[in-house]
Write a protein that binds this DNA or RNA. Sequence first.
DNA 1: GATGAATGAGCTTTCATTCAT
DNA 2: TATGAATGAAAGCTCATTCAT
Lengths: 209, 209, 209, 209
Amino acid sequence: MNEPVKSTRRQQLQEYKKQKILEAAGALFREKGLDGTTMRAIATRAGYSTGAPYAYYQSKEEIYADLLSASLARLTQFIKQEVQTQSTPPLRAATAVSAYFRYYFDHSEDLQLGLYLFSPGEVKKRGFSKETNQQLNSRLLGALGFMANCLNELPNVTPEQAQQETLDATTYITGALMLSTTGRLETIGAQAEEMIDRYIQGMLQRISG
Amino acid sequence: MNEPVKSTRRQQLQEYKKQKILEAAGALFREKGLDGTTMRAIATRAGYSTGAPYAYYQSKEEIYADLLSASLARLTQFIKQEVQTQSTPPLRAATAVSAYFRYYFDHSEDLQLGLYLFSPGEVKKRGFSKETNQQLNSRLLGALGFMANCLNELPNVTPEQAQQETLDATTYITGALMLSTTGRLETIGAQAEEMIDRYIQGMLQRISG
Amino acid sequence: MNEPVKSTRRQQLQEYKKQKILEAAGALFREKGLDGTTMRAIATRAGYSTGAPYAYYQSKEEIYADLLSASLARLTQFIKQEVQTQSTPPLRAATAVSAYFRYYFDHSEDLQLGLYLFSPGEVKKRGFSKETNQQLNSRLLGALGFMANCLNELPNVTPEQAQQETLDATTYITGALMLSTTGRLETIGAQAEEMIDRYIQGMLQRISG
Amino acid sequence: MNEPVKSTRRQQLQEYKKQKILEAAGALFREKGLDGTTMRAIATRAGYSTGAPYAYYQSKEEIYADLLSASLARLTQFIKQEVQTQSTPPLRAATAVSAYFRYYFDHSEDLQLGLYLFSPGEVKKRGFSKETNQQLNSRLLGALGFMANCLNELPNVTPEQAQQETLDATTYITGALMLSTTGRLETIGAQAEEMIDRYIQGMLQRISG
DNA sequence: GATGAATGAGCTTTCATTCAT
DNA sequence: TATGAATGAAAGCTCATTCAT
């Protein structure tokens, strides 16, 4: 019987089309921002008519959640990939932190997405289900956890120290990304990449003592 | 001729009314967020009718810009005030940085305002006049400059170092504020205040070190 | 000072325009039924653009409520008017009942309006304020009360009897109107007017008995 | 050729499936009202996919028409059943009228259905086939005819009188049902059941003289 | 300047219906 | 026949902005 196959095909097709919608939404978001992106525009861009996306997503927010979820997955994968190319613990640690920065630096829309969806007020307004919210959180924690592991590999580092440095690095990177996207760094003649490089150097010295 | 006098009076009156509108917008923004605040609501809250604000501001964004400008002025004033209460250079430096953080931590709406108006999409979409944009920038730089001066008072510090530490502190604080407002710190059980305190200790050691 | 005048003028104008919207809504309702009448259509028919009616009415239902309220007022007035032309108590009683019937027979849209708004499910769905609902009810009771008074003028009639006959007449008339508008009477070759005339004769005999 | 057989089987199957759809529609209508019932919901409830009902019914209204048709059949059956339990002509007459009332009083959704489909706007808008309309009418006339027969069994009653009393009773009952469903009776503290009982007593006296 | 009615594009979402598979 | 993705018109409502008074 070919029913399972049929079912699988359907699912694959459905997944493919969801992907199309997601891509359209992502592209539009990059161009016009979240508020500037309408369901109509998403549908049109994806090659559909007005109501079609509702067959795949129950609401605009569900699309955004999926977009963010995919983004977080890509982030984690990117960091792991980059780290794999490095052989020594210090390089691996530096690369993990650096990759985190570069991912968002190169995909500013993903940064906006994350900030937008997690922003206060939005969370209340946009009705994510608890599951969705938890999934989103665990994905983020997955990326951070991996970074902490890399730092943990360094000699003479306690797990607590690794965790704290991870948080600090994340904090600093987030700030750099914000100041960069909003054009503040430009104003004062600073460059995010250099700042991060310098930060990483400092971090390694601090840890290795 | 009494035109100059008249003009001055007019200007004062105009300034006063702008102020009224600004206050209304600020209050509403605090209560309902940026998206939830409509021009109608601002007008009503300020005691005017629907169209009145347009006599003073050309658009909603111009109001926001003015609001942000005032916010940056208050920020600078707040930092100066706090620093004045301190007598030793290290305390003054620590207080400057700490005040910067606390101002935004206690006024998250001002943070949102800044992010909104400085965000890349908005800057392109809404056409601020160059003057407006420059004024905004110079106000921000004013606050940062004052912080740098405080660091500069420390012994054995070069102006370059002071400036760099100011930028780093600003970056870290911005990141901490973002992660805090978006609820990410809560998720991992961290507290912004503690993080900042720790950061400041590290900074002082680094400089005086 | 002419401020009160100005205010009165404004109010008059506002009332006039509300009237315009009401008329448009009424006409459309007559043509297309309640469900078939959209806010856009009402606006257009009244010579306005899409959003204009919302300056006068907060929602579609508010328009309907006003429409119904006006209808009930006209009903009462019509009955009183008709009764006034009659001199003897029996004729006045007969005319009151007859006028009630004729009003709705001649304005089937008003009948639909009343039935629609008061229909179960609708009351829940449509959010009338309690005040609105009470006002609507008291208007209806006003008309019924007047009819009861007319019956009460007949010799040898107790108030209870008058009230009961009013209710019965109302019930019968309502039924006749329903069967008439839905085309059921036509199907069986009956005529509402004749039925009502006959009913009134029977009623007078019963009472004067 | 076995086509007739096949055809019969097909017809039976078709009839069975139509029945399924009808049941689903009826249940939903009872739960959510006419406006709240969508084709999707009907299909799903009947165990089919979105488009399936269109293989059996050309439109939503056709489903409603069929539902109403079935309802009228049940009404007739219910009246006959009730009348059968009575032995004397007056009781049979009273029961016929009373059963008519009770059927709709207990199944207000059937009343709504009838009003919806028979309402003037709908008949024009939705194009029923003539056959459908006639079938609906003849079913209604069937119920009324049976009631008239019951009245005819009374002594000293002319067929004309029986028919007229049937029409009057139907009219009064219809009115009572409308006033009851729309909550008007509640407002003035009256009860439909009592009103009908009283009406029947009056009717019997009138006829038996 | 102030008023507030008016504009009209725009939004999300719904849903009867169609049609390729 | 059954499926269910796709269509696309429509709806109610919002709101920044304009403009006659």
